[in-house]
Every structure is written in C-alpha cells, then in structure tokens.
Amino acid sequence: MSDQTRLIKKYPNRRLYDTKTSAYITLADVKDLVLRFEEFKVVDAKAGDDLTRSILLQIILEEETGGVPIFSTELLAQMIRFYGNSMQAMLSKYLETNMKAFVDFQGKVQEQSRSMYGDNNQMQSDMWAQFLNFQGPAMQSMMSAYMDQSKKMFHQMQAQIESQTRNMFTGGFPFPGTPGASGAPAAGNTPGNKPDGKKTEKAG
C-alpha cells in the first residue's frame, strides 16, 4: 500500500474508521471517495484482512436497489453462471478492459463538449445522449461483427485441435507391434524368413 492510499478500518460493530480524518464514516462517505478518484483501502481492524471489494460491492448493491439499476436480472444471472467456469478469468479481463475503454471514451466526449459548451452540464448531458442515440446502431453492428468473428475463430481452433488429435492417433504415434512401428518387423519379414516368406536354410 502506497503512502497516498487512504486507510479505512472496519470494526466488528460494522463502523468504518477513517485514519486520515480520525473519524467514523459511512458507506456514503466511501462512495464520495470513489467519485473523487481517491485511493483507499478498507481493512478489518482486528485481523487486517482486505475488505475493499466487499465494501465496494455493498455500495453497488445499495445503488442497484435504491435507484436505476445498471445490471438487469438476466445479466446478473449470466454473470453468476460464469463463477467456477473455465471462462471466468477471461470474462473478468473482458469486462475490465471494456469498462476502461468506455470510461476513456466518455472522458474524451466530455472534454469535447466542455470545449464547446463550457461547464453547462445540461448541454453536456444532451450531447452525450444524442451521441449515444446516433452511435447505438453502429455500436451494436460492431459488436455483432466482433461476435461473428470470434465464433469463426473458435470453430477454426476447434477444427485444428480435432485434426491434430486425429493425426496423433492415426499416423503420428503408431502403437508397438503395428506395421511401421519403430522396432516392429514388417509383414513377411519375421526372423528366419526371407522377404518372400520362405524360410532361410542354415549353412552346412
């Protein structure tokens, strides 16, 4: 933890203690820290365990139940199904990467709208809404093309693996005793026989 990280201790009575201000704070205060992009870490006051994720999840839960939710029921169900799945790590990376790209893109749009309308929040909000309405179909088309390409790549990879598996068991690794296997005599060339199948006669 860097010196810039704000340390918040959580006590058994569920109260949060901000070591920077030497005062107890609420979840709403922690949310304000998030909105202000301040680095902080929540730890268990007794065991020292990192509780930052659980506190952030509590804030998300309050936002989801108290206002307009971001996650639909179907989306939440799909996310739950990924837990324990082999694709769980890939989904986590995918969401993190795309969220960062979306935030960066939103920041650029806000900078452009601020240069045009100043600090008029209503105008900035209207510009963002108009942009999303205009770009919505294009973004859906791009995502559809991305999914189609991903499916093609997956099928190609699957076909390649199946082909390699067939080659492994049919020609790549012959079993001992089969014709052509290393150390195995060819048909008609058993010890004591000539290639034409006739037995050799001992000299004398």
Rank of each mutant, 00 (worst) to 15 (best):
A181H: 01
R15V: 08
Q124E: 09
D18F: 09
S125I: 07
M99E: 03
R114E: 15
K108D: 13
N98P: 04
D196W: 03
K202R: 12
S22Y: 10
K198W: 01
T97P: 00
A77H: 05
T19F: 13
P174L: 02
Q164Y: 10
N121W: 11
N167V: 03
L27V: 02
P195H: 01
Q158H: 01
P191V: 04
L75H: 03
A47G: 05
Q124A: 09
T200A: 06
P195I: 05
Y83G: 04
T65F: 12
Q149W: 04
V42A: 08
T73V: 12
A203P: 02
K10M: 15
E64G: 13
V43K: 11
K152D: 09
F37S: 15
L35V: 10
V34Q: 15
G172N: 08
A145I: 00
F71T: 08
M79C: 06
D49C: 01
R114T: 12
D3P: 14
Q124V: 13
A187C: 02
L76F: 10
E201L: 02
D32Y: 05
Y17W: 14
M127E: 00
A45Q: 09
H155E: 15
E38G: 10
N133M: 11
P176G: 00
Q88T: 00
K108H: 13
G107A: 10
G84Q: 01
Q4P: 08
L76Y: 10
D148P: 04
M139D: 04
A145S: 13
M99Y: 04
K31Q: 15
L57M: 14
T5C: 14
L27F: 09
M143F: 04
Q122I: 15
M139S: 00
D18E: 09
F82Q: 03
K199D: 08
E38Q: 15
N120W: 12
G48H: 02
E201H: 03
F102R: 02
T200I: 14
D18V: 07
K202H: 04
D29C: 10
N120I: 07
